[in-house]
């Protein structure tokens, strides 16, 4: 066990999997000579060489399309999209190919493919580079969508993703790379499709994931000062969604706040709250609240951007409203 950053945890997972399995290789923009635009693959090119750490042209459809083809032949590509905003240029291949081929050809085609990408706002990158469209990807059966909130989960989930035979969107958060946490050494695997309780409490259930886990934990610490104990369920995987720990927690607290960085309309919170109402209606003591990004394209100006993004205070306020 060592205290390392999210960046190091992800890097470690990639490195260990490449050492373990020669079929694993990395491809994407600036993953090689540059060392990754978020420095995750620094040193990989020199160690593993240009065949296994492949710099690509700026051509997202070609990156994802060719990664799909290579995966179909039995290799295990980890294709990197520099940001999730650029995934829209590869949307056809993610949605119409990666998510469909296994089913459409009745299991003939197997796609051990990981699409590593980075989402989230808060870095003054403007509307086109700051989105959190995780729910969009979670909409499609055939695709798995993973979004870790801690360094340990990042390592364990990425290793699980690389070993999986299904196509997986692995969504990292741009402002979590420097976050530190205890990460088990060596072969540490976190199963895909398992939510987990990150903090126990009896008064309210906060359902969240990725960057918003960090804010939710801060909010819970503040609330504890007022004697309010929040239980935090971290989804970790959006599809397949593991709703059980959410329902279990809700049946105990009877109150829920769902915190996501994306927009409220048709979002993760909409899905979670619907499932709570469907599965635990008799346990509802207060309307479920959602804390989300405001419904605007994210602006560049620092203050305006922060006004649009969910804040710790918003979570505290929402919790107090449901109590």
């Amino acid at each position: 066990m060592a205290k390392i950053t999210m960046r190091q945890a992800i890097s470690q997972a990639l490195w260990e999997e490449m050492e373990r399995d020669p079929q694993v290789f990395i491809m994407g923009q600036e993953v090689g000579v540059w060392g990754g635009t978020y420095a995750v693959t620094k040193g990989f090119y020199d160690h593993f060489g240009p065949e296994r750490v492949r710099d690509t042209p700026i051509a997202e459809a070609a990156i994802i399309g060719s990664a799909i083809g290579a995966a179909m032949t039995g290799t295990r590509p980890v294709a990197e999209l520099m940001t999730i905003n650029f995934a829209f240029s590869a949307m056809d291949h993610i949605v119409n190919e990666a998510a469909k081929l296994h089913y459409m050809f009745n299991g003939q085609m197997v796609l051990p493919l990981v699409i590593r990408t980075v989402g989230g706002g808060g870095r003054q990158l403007g509307a086109t580079h700051s989105q959190t469209p995780d729910a969009v990807f979670a909409h499609f059966p055939g695709l798995k969508v993973v979004a870790p909130g801690t360094p340990a989960d990042a390592k364990g989930l990425l290793k699980a993703a690389i070993r999986s035979n299904d196509p997986i969107m692995f969504i990292e958060h741009a402002t979590l790379y420097q976050v530190r946490g205890d990460v088990p050494d060596g072969d540490y695997i976190v199963p895909i499709g398992k939510s987990t309780v990150q903090r126990s409490g009896d008064h309210v259930t906060i359902v969240t994931y990725s960057k918003m886990l960090e804010l939710s934990l801060k909010a819970a610490d503040e609330l504890a000062k007022d004697g309010i104990e929040a239980e935090i369920v971290d989804l970790r995987t959006l599809r397949p969604l593991d709703i059980e720990p959410v329902i279990e927690s809700f049946k105990k607290t009877n109150r829920a706040v769902i915190v996501e960085e994306g927009w409220k309309s048709f979002g993760v919170g909409a899905e979670i709250s619907a499932q709570i109402y469907e599965q635990a209606f008799d346990y509802v003591d207060a309307p479920i609240k959602r804390v989300t990004q405001k419904e605007v394209p994210l602006p560049y100006n620092r203050d305006l951007e922060q006004m649009a993004l969910p804040q710790v205070e918003d979570i505290i306020k929402a919790v107090k409203e449901v109590l």
Binding site: Q23, F25, E51, A61, A62, I64, G65, S66, A67, I68, G69, A70, A71, M72, T73, G74, T75, D92, H93, N96, E97
Partner: peptide, 17 residues
Amino acid sequence: GAHLPIAAGLALGDVYQ
């Protein structure tokens, strides 16, 4: 046209292996 990048990937798989 969507299968053209996939075709490049099939060939990449052969080269890689």
